[in-house]
């Protein structure tokens, strides 16, 4: 049965416990902590998911300018969302991995076997969400859905740490039902919420989100693609080009020969 995360961004308080719990459980060091600078991007000083940051909390301030006359009551929002590997049902990284390092586990999660990975970085370019990154050890890294914890019947560290249960772990189908219910409840209160990660997004995301705005607002692609989608067409293009080159090549070679033959038949004194 597929396991994954249901992240309800409407109850995320942006505390970043998920980021710290992930670092702590997986023994990931901080990225040059003494040299980091204030990004100025709200309270997000992490920037992106990376080889060391497998969870990344995003902050999107939506506050209208007129709040200084009318206050914050109408339409002021501060959206917070904990980004993570989506463990896609159709995973781009898994598709392209040439060593077979990236596999699908018995929990339906996408897992990088770091003893197989040779650091070719195809997965970096293949993930439409910008999740996978190359580490300083030359191997690709991303969220493992705490595979080691799952194998011992525990839930991932971030889900356990999240104080408001914004990150919930469990069977994807059950979680999806919860999310649908929540979206309906919010809708009844006039809040437009949508689930990001149903099967319209690369076949479904085992780690899906409840959002209250367009995915692009959260930095998520509205229509993510799979890397294999255009490969056949591109190969076809190469084949066609090869054919064209062969034909023009043949023409060039034959023409010369014909010219030569005709020249051979002409007067010998014309030769240089």
């Amino acid at each position: 049965m597929a396991k994954g995360f249901y992240t309800d961004t409407t109850v995320c308080i942006g505390c970043k416990a998920c980021q710290v719990a992930c670092h702590q459980w997986n023994g990931l060091p901080a990225e040059e902590p003494g040299e980091r600078e204030l990004t100025g991007d709200s309270y997000d000083n992490t920037g992106t998911l990376s080889a060391l940051n497998w969870r990344h909390v995003k902050f999107i301030e939506q506050i209208p300018e007129d709040r200084h006359q009318n206050g914050f009551l109408d339409g002021s929002r501060w959206l917070m969302m904990s980004d993570v590997c989506k463990h896609c049902v159709h995973a781009g990284c898994l598709e392209v991995c040439p060593t077979g390092a990236i596999i699908r586990t018995e929990f339906d999660s996408v897992f990088i076997q770091t003893d197989v990975c040779n650091g070719c970085r195809a997965c970096l370019a293949a993930c439409p969400f910008g999740v996978v990154d190359i580490g300083s050890d030359g191997k690709a890294h991303k969220c493992t859905l705490c595979y080691d914890r799952l194998q011992h019947g525990m839930e991932p560290a971030c889900a356990q740490a999240c104080p408001t249960d914004s990150i919930r772990f469990g069977e994807v189908s059950e979680l999806m039902a919860l999310a649908e219910q929540r979206a309906a409840d919010l809708g009844a209160h006039g809040i437009q919420a949508q689930i990001y990660g149903k099967d319209d997004i690369v076949g479904g995301l085992n780690c899906f989100y409840l959002l209250v705005d367009k995915p692009e607002v959260y930095g998520l692609p509205a229509k993510p693609e799979l890397p294999s989608s255009n490969v056949a067409a591109a190969l076809g293009g190469s084949a066609a080009t090869a054919a064209l080159l062969a034909i023009t090549g043949a023409v060039s070679f034959r023409k010369r020969r014909m010219d030569d033959m005709s020249r051979d038949e002409s007067a010998p004194e014309d030769e240089p």
């Binding site: 710290v20 901080a30 990225e31 040059e32 980091r36 000083n45 992490t46």
Partner: peptide, 9 residues
């Protein structure tokens, strides 16, 4: 370090 990098300045 894990906390320091979250709000470094």
């Amino acid at each position: 370090p894990w906390l320091a990098e979250l709000q470094p300045e």
